[in-house]
């Protein structure tokens, strides 16, 4: 954003206030810390573990957790679970983040048009209603089934499924603001519709989308694991967390850690996203912020 010659620095900028409010939310900070560590761990996975996540050691099959050399144990093919979790994060994060980012962009565009324009908007919103009417999971599975399994398919189908939800969040904001006095004033000042949408309305829609998207990423971690569990995600021997749970099901009684360890990973990452989303919700809303 360009610095304004007419707006000298105020005592405390809105951005600093938001940062401050976020920093005071302990769970949000904890969530952020966990997430940063998890992302680092995923990036540095080859340095953190000597094992290959897809090649097992025939001499170390079903080693229980906390054994020397295998902190989280091994599976029925002798593959180190810690290595599989770390490398699995390299799948889990893109699966959660990319669809939400794509859906946010598409949702913003559709929602702004849908909420602002009275004619075209009606058509857009009714089309989205059709997508709403179909259960989310079912629709995603149907799309994935039609396109074949694999990571790109999962990402695409999840993006399509989330888009209407984000569009609705944006459209609600846009429709509320459409007749706000300051929009009327902008029209009086001779602003084009396009300028009104992207300069006057967009800034109000973005915080809601950021919060919604962040919280949704947590849900998408679980969602993506569900795909893996059903065998629609990354294919074996890729260390997909959901697929790991499914594999572990067979020996749940004798080696419960096989399903539990990826399960815990999913819960921790998902919660981290949720707490961050909550923190952002408060931090980005001036009214909630001032209550702290």
């Amino acid at each position: 954003m360009s610095a304004s010659v007419l707006a000298p620095a105020a005592p405390r900028s809105a951005r600093l206030q938001a940062l401050d409010a976020f920093a005071r939310d302990r769970m949000a900070v904890l969530g952020l810390a966990v997430l940063v560590l998890a992302v680092l761990a995923a990036l540095l996975a080859p340095l953190l573990t000597p094992y290959d996540p897809t090649i097992g050691d025939q001499n170390a099959i079903l080693v229980p957790p906390f054994s020397p050399g295998h902190l989280l144990g091994t599976d029925d093919q002798g593959r180190d679970l810690l290595a599989r979790i770390l490398f699995g994060a390299r799948l889990a994060f893109p699966e959660a983040v990319i669809p939400v980012l794509a859906a946010s962009l598409a949702g913003l565009a559709l929602g702004l048009v849908g909420g602002f324009s009275r004619t075209v908007g009606e058509v857009v919103m009714r089309a989205l209603d059709v997508l709403f009417a179909i259960p989310m999971v079912l629709l995603a599975i149907a799309i994935a089934a039609a396109l074949g399994s694999g990571l790109p398919t999962v990402v695409l189908s999840m993006a399509i499924v989330i888009t209407p939800y984000i569009a609705r969040v944006v459209a609600t904001t846009a429709a509320q603001l459409r007749s706000a006095p300051f929009i009327e004033a902008a029209r009086c000042a001779g602003f084009r519709d396009w300028r009104i949408v992207h300069r006057e309305i967009l800034p109000h829609a973005i915080p809601a989308v950021v919060v919604y998207a962040t919280t949704n990423m947590g849900a998408m971690v679980v969602f993506a694991a569900g795909f893996g569990f059903l065998g629609l995600g990354a294919q074996p021997p890729a260390p997909d967390w959901g697929a790991m749970i499914a594999d572990g099901m067979r020996s749940l009684a004798s080696a419960p850690w096989l399903s539990t360890v990826p399960g815990i990973a999913i819960v921790v990452v998902s919660l981290a996203f949720n707490y961050i989303g909550d923190g952002l919700r408060v931090a980005l809303d001036p009214r909630l912020r001032s209550r702290l």
């Binding site: 304004s4 707006a7 706000a180 006095p181 004033a185 001779g190 602003f191």
Partner: peptide, 28 residues
């Protein structure tokens, strides 16, 4: 119409504070 609204006819409203976008400083 944009030209007339922009430079020919100015308008002020009942609640001036609401006629400014709350997201920006007045100067901007």
């Amino acid at each position: 119409l944009r030209k007339v609204r922009g430079s020919g006819v100015g308008m002020i409203f009942q609640n001036a504070r609401l006629s400014f976008n709350p997201a920006y400083r007045l100067g901007r």
